[in-house]
């Protein structure tokens, strides 16, 4: 049997809101070490990898490895019924065909249960090679969200170029061009506003803004986003979920 209780249920709501427009359905894999998901969008251009560690849950039990197929739109419908302050418990029998979501309000006055039908989904687990990246950039997630949104009003693609001191985002389109530079700033007073660059090699890669805007829906999960870039490799756009795990997006370069 699988049973997991997350005191901050809002976190699960935010995860699903961040990925539901990118992937239609996916298998959630549960084992002793935690709750994870790996899925590509239908055009095989981007990949979502979520992992929530067992110790990030208030209670976690998984007797056997199970894989639960869900349609994200349906999961989102159910999680929208949970209050932002509710604790969420997920439960499923080993050979069950449903997963139960239990929502508890903070004062335990309201308890609700929703069952979602599981589905069989063919999915292939991809081996993502461990790589050492040419450049790793950590920027405030709200700043990244604003940059990709602003640039999408000018062009369809963005060139991200990283040097020792700064990361530059550039685009151009029919009406003109734009570039936004963020300088390294290890702000001590306000760590949430820091921009940090770790570089082995200067790198410049071009990506579709449509996907980066979709990834930025994960902004509420983390104060920072980490971009990992290497020449001719997919970018990793990573949101660390404090104390619980990570949500990573991979996007092939243009």
């Amino acid at each position: 049997m699988f049973e997991a209780r997350l005191a901050q249920g809002a976190l699960l709501k935010k995860v699903v809101e961040a990925i539901k427009d990118l992937i239609e359905d996916a298998n959630f894999d549960c084992n002793n070490s935690g709750f994870s998901l790996q899925a590509m969008d239908s055009s095989h251009v981007s990949l979502v990898a979520l992992s929530l560690r067992a110790d990030g849950f208030e209670h976690y039990r998984c007797d056997r490895n199970i894989s639960m197929g869900m349609k994200l739109a349906n999961l989102s419908k159910i999680l929208k019924c949970a209050g932002n302050d509710d604790a969420i418990t997920m439960k499923s029998e080993d050979n069950g065909d449903t997963i139960t979501f239990m929502f508890e309000s903070p004062n335990q006055e309201r308890l609700s249960e929703f069952d979602l039908k599981l589905m069989d989904i063919d999915s292939e687990h991809l081996g993502i090679p461990e790589a050492e990246y040419d450049a790793t950039v950590k920027v405030p997630s709200s700043e990244f969200q604003r940059i990709v949104k602003d640039l999408a009003s000018i062009g369809d693609t963005v060139e991200i170029s990283v040097t020792k001191d700064a990361v530059k985002f550039s685009t151009s389109g029919d009406i003109g061009s734009a570039n936004i530079m963020c300088r390294q700033n290890k702000s001590v007073d306000k760590p949430e506003e820091s921009t940090e660059i770790d570089i082995n090699e200067p790198v410049a890669l071009t990506f579709a803004l449509r996907y980066l805007n979709s990834f930025a829906k994960a902004t509420p999960l983390s104060p920072h986003v980490v971009l990992k870039l290497s020449k001719d490799l997919p970018v990793v756009v990573e949101y660390h979920i404090p104390d619980v795990g990570r949500l990573g997006f991979y996007l092939a370069p243009k």
């Binding site: 095989h44 251009v45 081996g127 997919p234 092939a252």
Partner: peptide
């Protein structure tokens, strides 16, 4: 410029 698929990067041959 076309968009590359991730299959080329992550799928084992």
């Amino acid at each position: 410029m076309g968009q590359k698929s991730l299959d080329a990067f992550f799928k084992r041959p």
